[in-house]
Design a protein around this nucleic acid. Structure first.
Lengths: 186, 186
DNA sequence: GTCTATAACAGGATAGAC
DNA sequence: GTCTATCCTGTTATAGAC
């Protein structure tokens, strides 16, 4: 067998990058091939299920990222809550390129996306929410309160990404992230 | 000339309905033809520019809706601010089918969408924001405060639509709308 | 103004050589 | 494992009758 031209990590990063900017219907296999440096047929070798399987794999990859960089950071009981929050928000800021990038969950939850990948999207969102929920609990919030605040973090991030892009103003995302700090630390 | 089979208002409503559920790349001219009851060639007769021109027309239609049902309601100086807010939020709730529908602005701001329709999306969002800005000013807020609160209304609505769909829970949107009442009336 | 029919092209997917 | 070449379907768009 020939050697792998692109390793799995780079491959997934490249694939995710395309899907999140162009959406599911908007990305062609050609786009994916160009972005990764592989030919279409090579992508089919790695993902026999084609475009659908690739998008599913991207969602698994994204979920791993959220687990490592958001949930585990927020649940790390060795650190003070304020530190955990600051670190998680830094990671989130980086994930979205300070608001310049869009979210893969939003990109894959249009139309077909929702019916095809609804489960994966939901799992990703719940991973995110459960991390912030735990932070809220550790800060002494009641169950319902912690749940709603956690949900609000995702709402603010998704909303600010949509609006920031729409009005063409990066500061919308920045302000949302700063708002999330205050949401917990007061 | 033959009579119009579908009037402009019904036509635009049907076209918008497809675009906002399937996204720009996700909707085919066939989808639009089926939804409106016209044939593809008839759509080209009304919109010589094809799919792109149709999406642009939908954005103009959406902007008119926002102007009538959000901005003008919020700026109606004959009513108390609390009444204006309640009415605008009711209209917004209806527009999004209590959270079951998605937003045309989000649907048309993926990828191609942003480069093709960025201006239209921005105008729609600014129409929305300017309405709430005026409400904030009338309630005695300072310029910067009113601007941010107005932006937040759009962020919360867009975010709650994304998250509500993603986690499959209608109450997310409901709670966001209730939150917007409290945001101004305290 | 709307229709049927069709052209021209792009996209997803597969075959088979290396 | 990756590549080139190809198939086939669906898509945008146009031509021309009514």
């Amino acid at each position: 067998m020939r050697p792998q031209k692109v390793n799995d990590a780079d491959l997934m990063a490249g694939l995710m990058s395309v899907f999140r900017t162009k959406g599911y219907e908007g990305t062609s296999l050609n786009d994916l091939a160009v972005a990764t440096g592989l030919q279409k047929a090579s992508l089919y070798h790695r993902f026999p299920g084609g475009k659908k399987e690739i998008a599913e794999a991207v969602l698994v990859y994204a979920r791993g990222w959220i687990e490592n960089n958001v949930r585990q950071v927020l649940e790390d009981s060795n650190e003070m809550p304020a530190i955990r929050l600051a670190r998680a928000l830094d990671n989130i800021r980086e994930l979205y390129g300070n608001g310049k990038e869009t979210c893969i969950l939003r990109a894959l939850s249009m139309d077909q996306g929702l019916s095809l990948f609804g489960d994966g999207v939901q799992q990703n969102m719940e991973e995110w929410i459960s991390g912030f929920y735990r932070l809220g609990i550790d800060l002494g919030l009641e169950h319902e309160d912690a749940r709603e605040k956690a949900e609000d973090t995702l709402i603010m991030v998704q909303g600010s990404l949509v609006v920031g892009k729409g009005v063409g103003n990066d500061s919308v995302f920045d302000r949302a992230i700063r708002h999330l700090s205050r949401l917990y630390l007061t």
